[in-house]
Simulated assay, not measured.
Amino acid sequence: MLPEDQVEELAAKYAQEIVVAKMTSNSNFPIDAETGKQIADFYSEIFKGISETLKNSSFTYQN
């Protein structure tokens, strides 16, 4: 199992990559508070999912 700090680091890294890829695949997002909240919510859910998956796996990571 990964240490908690590595889980959070990897989850943040990959959640960011997923959100950026999603945002760049559709440039029709309006720039406003509501869209910002939706993006933040999307990132949070992706982060949680990746984090939970890593916590429950035997995945090892070497930098």
Rank of each mutant, 00 (worst) to 15 (best):
Q16F: 07
A21E: 15
E9N: 13
Q38N: 14
F47T: 04
K37Q: 13
F42L: 04
E45L: 14
A11L: 04
A33D: 15
E34P: 05
G49F: 14
E9F: 11
Q6W: 03
F59Q: 06
N56L: 00
F29N: 06
A33G: 04
S44F: 00
A15Y: 10
E52L: 14
A40I: 14
A11K: 09
Y43F: 12
S58L: 08
K55T: 01
S57G: 09
D41T: 08
F47K: 12
A12I: 00
K13V: 02
L10F: 05
F29W: 08
E8S: 07
S27P: 01
I39D: 01
T60L: 08
I39N: 02
N56F: 00
Q6A: 05
I18P: 03
L54R: 13
A40G: 06
V20T: 15
G49H: 15
L10P: 06
D41A: 09
Q6E: 11
Y61H: 08
S27T: 10
V19H: 01
G36S: 12
E9H: 11
E8I: 11
M23S: 03
D32R: 05
S57H: 04
N56C: 01
E45S: 11
T53S: 12
F29C: 02
P30I: 10
S57Q: 06
Q38H: 12
A21M: 15
Q16S: 14
E52W: 13
I39W: 11
L10K: 01
E9W: 11
Y43L: 00
P30Y: 11
V20R: 15
F59P: 08
A12P: 03
S58C: 04
Y43W: 09
K55A: 02
T60G: 03
I31S: 02
K55M: 03
F59H: 03
A15M: 11
L2P: 01
E4F: 11
A12E: 14
F29G: 02
T35Q: 15
M23A: 07
D5R: 04
F29Y: 11
N63E: 13
L54N: 10
D5E: 09
N63G: 09
E8D: 13
V7N: 01
I31K: 10
A12C: 07
S57D: 08
F42T: 02
E4M: 05
F42C: 01
K37R: 15
E17V: 01
D5Q: 05
K22D: 03
P3L: 04
I50R: 11
P30N: 10
F47V: 04
E9G: 07
K48H: 08
I50D: 13
N56R: 03
L2F: 02
E4P: 14
Y43S: 06
S51N: 10
F29D: 01
N26M: 04
Q38M: 14
F47M: 07
T53C: 11
A33M: 14
A21K: 15
S51P: 06
Q6H: 06
K48E: 12
A15G: 10
Q62S: 08
Y14F: 14
E34A: 11
V7I: 05
A11I: 04
E52V: 13
I50N: 13
A15V: 10
I50M: 13
A40E: 12
F59S: 00
E8A: 07
G36E: 09
I31N: 07
F42H: 05
S58F: 07
Q6V: 04
E4Q: 13
A40D: 15
Q62N: 06
Q38L: 15
M1P: 07
K13C: 03
Q62L: 09
E4C: 03
